[in-house]
Amino acid sequence: MNELVMAVFGAMLLIGAIGTVRSHDPFDKLISLGVLVAGVMPFLADRGYLDVLAATALIAPLSTIFILMAMRREGHGP
């Protein structure tokens, strides 16, 4: 992968991480976490681990859904 492309995806990853820490609403945090996950995926593809990528991409929403279960229980509104 090109260095410039790698720099853009790395910047995207850091944008997602900082956005997750800085936002206050739990829903905003989960959406920024989605950006972080999106930034990780091209690095997995670059190393050639396509099977790991498919497994990770299907597991990541599961952990988001588990956190959403806790939020529904607590009654976090908009």
């Binding site: 853009v8 995806f9 910047a11 995207m12 944008i15 997602g16 900082i18 956005g19 936002s23 959406i31 920024s32 950006v35 999106a38 930034g39």
Partner: peptide
Amino acid sequence: AGYAALRVV
């Protein structure tokens, strides 16, 4: 992708 990530945040 980078532009849309900035817009998300």
